[in-house]
Each structure stands twice: as structure tokens, then as C-alpha cells.
Design a protein around this nucleic acid. Structure first.
Ligand code: ZN
Ligand code: ZN
Lengths: 363, 363
DNA sequence: ACACAAGTAC
DNA sequence: GTACTTGTGT
């Protein structure tokens, strides 16, 4: 993932708030993987919402320096602005979008470090760390507005899509509905509450990689578009901030991925890449030939006498009858031509069509 | 307002339903103007939802024949499709949009008989009748979808704008919120309930004209746009049906006004007028002056354009494809012949058949 | 009023 | 994938 080039000021405000900790205690007590987190949280003295700077902690057999993202600023209060600065950290935290075939409903632009996809489309994100400690680690994903004039606003869903009857909200718990990012991981914890004017994020315990691989894949999904009306994103660009955290909420790594959720991911990606290259004045002589010829090979079987069920809507009673008549003629011709040598199947078919023609199903 | 030349069959379904009558009884008991209505309603024997045809009633000193819009059909059940046929009736009921200066937030197109305005913009409508009786009369305004394939759907607000926190809903009663048409008249009665799957309308007692004038002006306002997402209008055109009714809900007059609620009324009016003149110029090479108001596409029972679902078994993939092709040809022919005036249903049908032809359901 | 943005139909 | 529709910012 490319370096984040944002010039937004960032503050070390990634720590869990008291409310979030309480919420975790309530929510995840039945999740084995995070029991340790619960234990530590319940004895956690660092509850005032501030990071301990340059705090030394022991992870496995390795002493690491836990540093905040920016050392040049110590705000007196917790900032609403979340840091989005790239910070691989002691475990060389990496976040990758696997390059996808054109078949996928999402598309990634390396030059923009931006993923484009439609709403409700699941997409994979690969997480990689090195020298993994014994302690439980978590990944938190927080959507934030990219533009500085909105980065202090929290990203909520629009009224429409948050509605309980929305198809995307079937069997979705009340507190999950307000989140625009969902994770398919069943241990996912949805943090924050719009009603309490809190920033929303989703956290998952970092799973162990499948043997033979170093990365862990998680599926995510956005359930609102950038174009959703206020109080939704209202056409403001966003990015997803992935933070690697320990159970106390200390940030051990951070990566950012710009995101656009829209109806035409491909078109919009090309448009943004074009204006990006225009802006940076790096004329790319890169031609792309879009090969779109996809002719399906017509396989011809030896004997074309299998039965196919057609369900089609026809406007107009007369027209529907015409279709029936045509079907009858077609089958009758075949029946006559085949005679007793394979014509039985056509005879059955004729009977079926006959019934449709005789009985007034077309009311 | 131009004459409506609809050829659509219409049903006498404008009568007040029992629920509506009950609702009126509950709602307007404190409104002096309609006390008579309440009284009569409470003793009203015509509560079965059907009109009495050619019923003789005495209005003031004049005997009038109360006729339904169309006498040629007596449907056995109440239709969901509301008549939109022009019917001046015994009192020569007129509905006028006063021509406006360019300063107003709304514009009226005489050739289209259509008003264009932004959402939440109040606009005036003038009502005129002749030989006004002593009895109380009411004006009911009902929004309906213009296209036949949607005319049986009821017009509701979108989730977004129906939300209690919406600015347009400040100090607005619960049952009013769901209506897209509001009237500034304090005696307005909002009829129907979305929760009960009823059609919504607003009714007002017809005031007495100011001395020296013959018409009564009322201010209305639409609080959703045509472009509002489902379950809102979802870009489907609508019209407002104004019915003059007596206290029993008998229709004594009817006028229709097409409506478009959008962000750029002027632009969209010019665009629609342009394509209207394009459409009317081409088919008739010679005629120019006579046609001043267009035919309106409406649902009609004596037109053979309902959709029928056929489920038939065909032997042979090729034959199945032939049936599909034939169906496609049949619908395509209809579509071409109907054009934009009623061809939409065939287009939808074609899409369905297309999908069957393109996707290898025939495996 | 114009040009752009972004969802949708074809 | 193209073109149109329609809201929004300037
Ligand atoms: Zn949304
Ligand atoms: Zn709306």
C-alpha cells in the first residue's frame, strides 16, 4: 500500500474510550478469543483516554517501543480528528488489497491507494504482521472523512439505509445498523454509538494466518454510498483507517486505505486516476486496450431433445395466446416429423401446452 | 387547464371508505366548517364504498344528476386505479394555475398541463365552480402515478423525508408526515394511512370566494421530489387529481394536473416541452395547430396490455430458444408500435425475455 | 444559469 | 459500456 500523502494534522487519539471499554465488556464476554482483552480491560488503569507516550511494553520476547503516530503534538484534549498517518510499527503492520480480476465488484487503484466498490459488496483485505507476539492483537477499522474540513465529523449511515426495513439490515443487530463498515468475522465488535455522538468503528481479533501464509484475510463490506444524503456521507470522500491495537487500545500500527462506494466503481476509478495524473502532471503513455469481446462458445449437443421450462411474462392476453399457439405449432411440427421414433417426448409437451390453451389460466 | 383526452376506463372509486369516514369523524369534530359534513357522515347510509349510479340529488334549487366518470363499466370490486378523467360536472368545476412571473419558485406548462416546482415550495391553485349549492362541498387532492404500470401503486413519501427529524416535519402531526401533498388550509383533512396500505389524499372544505371573484385560492406544497428513492416516487411521474366532492364523497367534478417536483423546475420544464413538441411533430406530418393537449398514458382495462405469466415446458433447447425469440419478436413489435405512449410495459417485458435469452438458464 | 457529479436505464 | 437523468456547487 502506498504511503499516505495526506497533510492532515493527526493526533494520538486512538485509545479506547471508557464507553468503548464498557461496551466491549458487555459484548464480547462470550467470545473466547478476547477473554484476555476483557481481563486486561477490566483492570486497565489507562482509562483517561490519553496515550502513554514512548511507553515500554513487553510483547512476547521482544521489547518494543510503543510510539504514538505523531510526536510533534500533544493535544490537551482528545481530538476529534483521528490520525491517518501510515505507521507500520514494531510488527511491520501491512494492509493489502489483493489485485482482482475484472470479474469482482470492486477495483483497487494503486496510484490512488483507493478501493472503489458498490455498496453491499464484500471485499477482502489482507493483514500481515511480523514477529507476532503471544498477546492478543486486534484490528480496528474506522471510517473517516478524507477532507480536512470534514475530518472531525463522524461517519454515519444515511437515514434511508439505516432504516430497520432496509434489505441490508435483515437480521442485523440494532447497534450494528448504524455502522457503514461491516466485517464478516463473527467476532467483530461494533464500537461507538451515534446516539451518544461517538465515532464508530469495528474491531476484530487478529486471527492466526493459515499455515503456509503470513497474512490473514478478512471480508469487509460498506453499506452506504459516498453519495448517500446527510446525515450520510453526502458525497464527501472517506478513507478506512486500519489500526493494529493491543487489548488496551494502544496503537501498534496504522495503515490507511481510501475508499469510494459508488454505483460505477470502474468509471469513477478511471476518472479519478485521470484527474490524479493530470494534477501531478505525469503524463502516462499507458495505453489500455479494453478487450471486451466475450463470445460464449455455443456448444452443440448431439440430440436436442431435452425439456426446458420457460417462465416468461407476456403483456397482453392475445399475445400470450399467440406464444402458446406458436409453441404448440413448434412442438406439433417436431412430433409429426419424429413420429414414433422419438416423438413421444414432444407428445407429452403438446399435452402440457394444450392444457394451458384450453384452461383459462390467462385471467 | 386543458382538456384531458384520456381514453382510460375509470371506476367510481372516489367514494370515502368507511375508514376514511371514521377518520374524518375523529379528526374534524373541532372544525366548524365541516360540522355539517360530520353530521351527515355519521348518518350516511352509503358506506359500502360503491357509488349510486345516476342518483338524483338536490343541490340548492337545482336538480343535478350525479354521474360517475365513466358509465360504461361497473366493476365488481373497487379498483386500485383512480380515475383521472376530466369531468367538469354539474358545477363546471375548474382548477387553474395562475400564470406566474419568473420570480416564483414554480412554473406551469400549459401545453403539458404540468406544474414544475421544487420540494417544499408553496404554490397556489384556484378552484372555480358555478351555481354553488348550499351544501358543503369539498376538494380532495390525490397524488397518483401517471404511468399505467404504476398507477395502482399509492404515492408515499420516501423514508428520508418522512423522518420525524426532517426539517419539513417540524410541528407536523404524525399522520400528516406521510403525505407528499400538504395544504395550508387549516381545515385540511389528511386521509388514508400508509400503515394500512391505503391511498393518501388531502381534503379541504371549499371556501367561499372572496367578494368580487368567482374562484377560491388554496396553497399547496409537495414535500418529496419525484426523484426521492423507493418507497418514495423513485423518479416516476405523478399527477394530482382534484375532485370536487359532496359530504358523502360523491364526485361532482374532477380535474387533473401533472406535477414534477425537482431541483431545477425551469430546466426540466423546458426539456419536457422540447421532447413533447418533438414527439408531436414527427408522427403527424401535416397536423400542427389542432393538437394542443396531449394524450395521456393511462391504465386501461379495455386495452389488452396486462402481463401474463406463462410457464411452459418445451422439448429441445433450440425450440425453447425459438419460443423465446418469437416472444421477443411479438413484444418488440408491440413496443415499436406503441412507442413512448404505453410502450413501457412491453419494454419491461422485453427485458425479462432478454434475460432469459442471454443468460444460460437453458442448461 | 452553467457545468459537473453520480445514479440509473438501455 | 454508453447515454441520460437529475441533484449540487459555483
Ligand atoms: Zn446510505
Ligand atoms: Zn422524499
Amino acid at each position: 500500500m502506498n504511503k499516505c500523502e495526506s497533510e492532515v494534522m493527526s493526533f494520538p487519539s486512538d485509545i479506547l474510550s471508557q464507553e468503548e471499554q464498557d461496551e466491549i465488556l458487555r459484548e464480547i464476554s462470550d467470545i473466547p478469543d478476547v477473554n484476555e482483552m476483557v481481563h486486561i480491560l477490566s483492570n486497565n488503569s489507562n482509562i483517561n483516554g490519553e496515550n502513554d507516550f514512548n511507553e515500554e511494553k513487553e510483547y512476547k520476547d521482544k521489547i518494543v517501543i510503543v510510539v504514538p503516530a505523531n510526536e510533534h503534538s500533544i493535544p490537551p484534549i482528545i481530538s476529534n480528528i483521528l490520525s491517518n498517518e501510515e505507521y507500520p510499527g514494531p510488527f511491520e503492520f501491512e494492509v493489502d488489497i489483493c489485485p482482482n480480476g475484472s470479474k469482482n465488484p470492486w477495483v483497487y487503484s494503486p496510484p490512488l491507494n483507493k478501493i472503489f466498490m458498490d455498496m453491499n459488496s464484500p471485499f477482502p483485505v489482507d493483514f500481515k504482521i511480523k514477529n507476532r507476539p503471544q498477546n492478543s492483537l486486534f484490528i480496528r477499522v474506522t471510517p473517516v472523512y478524507s477532507l480536512p474540513q470534514h475530518s472531525q465529523d463522524f461517519v454515519y449511515r444515511c437515514i434511508n439505509h439505516e432504516h430497520p426495513m432496509e434489505t441490508s439490515n435483515r437480521n442485523v443487530k440494532e447497534n450494528v445498523r448504524q455502522h457503514i463498515i461491516r466485517c464478516s468475522n463473527s467476532s467483530a465488535i461494533y464500537l461507538g454509538d451515534k446516539e451518544k455522538s461517538q465515532r464508530l468503528s469495528v474491531a476484530i481479533p487478529l486471527s492466526l494466518p493459515q499455515s503456509g501464509t503470513e497474512s490473514v484475510r478478512e471480508m469487509f463490506q460498506f453499506v452506504c454510498k459516498n453519495s448517500c444524503p446527510t446525515p450520510g456521507m453526502n458525497r464527501r470522500p472517506i478513507e478506512a483507517i486500519f489500526t493494529l491495537e493491543d487489548v488496551s487500545g494502544h496503537v501498534l500500527g496504522r495503515q490507511t486505505l481510501r475508499v469510494r462506494i459508488c454505483s460505477c466503481p470502474k468509471r469513477d476509478k478511471e476518472k479519478e486516476e485521470k484527474e490524479h495524473s493530470d494534477n501531478t502532471r505525469l503524463p502516462r503513455g499507458k495505453k489500455r486496450k479494453v478487450e471486451k469481446s466475450e463470445k460464449k462458445p455455443v456448444a452443440s449437443s448431439d440430440v436436442d431433445n431435452k425439456e426446458y421450462k420457460l417462465t416468461l411474462n407476456i403483456v397482453g392476453k392475445h399475445n400470450a395466446q399467440q406464444v402458446l399457439k406458436y409453441s404448440h405449432d413448434l412442438m406439433a411440427g417436431e412430433y409429426i416429423r419424429h413420429g414414433s421414433n422419438g416423438g413421444e417426448v414432444y407428445k407429452n409437451c403438446l399435452n402440457g401446452i394444450n392444457n394451458l390453451m384450453i384452461f383459462p389460466t390467462l385471467k
